[in-house]
Amino acid sequence: MSVVLIVEDEAQLARAMQINLQAHGYRAVTVGKGRDALKAAATQPVDIVVLDLGLPDMDGVDVIRGLRGWSTMPIIVLSARHASEDKVEALDAGADDYVTKPFGLDELLARLRAASRRAEPRNESPTVATAGFVMDLAAKRVVKGGKEVRLTPTEWSILEILVRNPGRLVTQQQLLTQVWGQAYAKETQYLRVYVAQLRRKLEEDPSVPRHLHTEAGMGYRFDP
């Protein structure tokens, strides 16, 4: 069953879409803010995103850019913006499709089917094992040396984003935007503090990390 993340701040419309998609065999999750969308996409399995551009906390185009920093999941824009420049901006940012409001359910379902056909298969294991610790993505638990490691919600969010992108650079801006929101995109000191805390909790030698690496001036990389 495909999981669709609906990002729509009009609660009545979001609920209607959720009910209709679930009636047609999808599992639909709804959020009303861009920051919540970035967090949901990073912390739970999502196959397709249906995104409104006019969100209360950040522009939908910035949500697209945030998702595209680490994910290839299909993004279908659902917006009242009809201008061609709005469509071009969203598609250039990484959206796969653009549907203008008002729209018909049959059209949305057809777009979802097309997006599903184009989507790359996602073979993500719920458990990630390293030489030092084991992370259960489904249960949101980390075990080191047979004992559970207590992580704060923010520490977990950062670690999960890195773990879901093994061996790849995740930029500072991507992490800040996905965990805290677009308004914090330049607050790099936040990351330094939290990554240092993660190293103290998870690395055998925090001063010489084996798993959580810093790419100076750019971001961070997780190596199993």
Rank of each mutant, 00 (worst) to 15 (best):
I76Q: 09
V128Q: 03
L21A: 02
H24Q: 13
P209G: 05
K147R: 15
G69N: 04
G60Q: 07
L191F: 09
R210G: 09
V170I: 15
A185W: 13
Y194S: 01
I64V: 15
T127S: 04
L13T: 13
K33A: 07
G32P: 11
K33H: 10
E203W: 02
V49D: 01
K201Y: 00
G69I: 06
R113N: 08
K87I: 11
L202R: 01
P45T: 10
A216R: 15
A11P: 01
G217N: 12
R164K: 14
N165P: 05
G132R: 13
L108V: 11
L21I: 02
E8N: 10
V99S: 02
L91S: 11
A185D: 12
A216E: 11
M218N: 13
L105V: 02
W180N: 06
E203S: 03
S71D: 09
T188N: 10
A119W: 05
A183M: 10
M1E: 02
R141P: 00
R141C: 00
R68F: 11
V50F: 01
I161E: 04
Q172N: 15
L5F: 05
Q18I: 01
K186S: 15
P45E: 13
L51M: 05
V170Q: 07
K144Y: 02
R221G: 04
R27T: 14
A110Y: 03
G146H: 10
G60S: 10
G25Q: 07
Y220H: 08
R168V: 02
L212K: 04
P153A: 12
H82Y: 11
T154Q: 11
L212Y: 03
H24P: 02
L53M: 12
W180K: 14
E160M: 10
R168S: 12
Q172E: 15
P56D: 09
R192H: 07
T30W: 12
V4T: 06
G146C: 10
H213I: 14
V50S: 06
L38S: 09
A83F: 01
P45G: 03
T43V: 03
S2Q: 09
G219L: 10
A11H: 12
D86Q: 06
A139C: 00
E89M: 14
A139V: 00
S84Y: 05
R111M: 05
R27C: 05
P121F: 01
G167P: 08
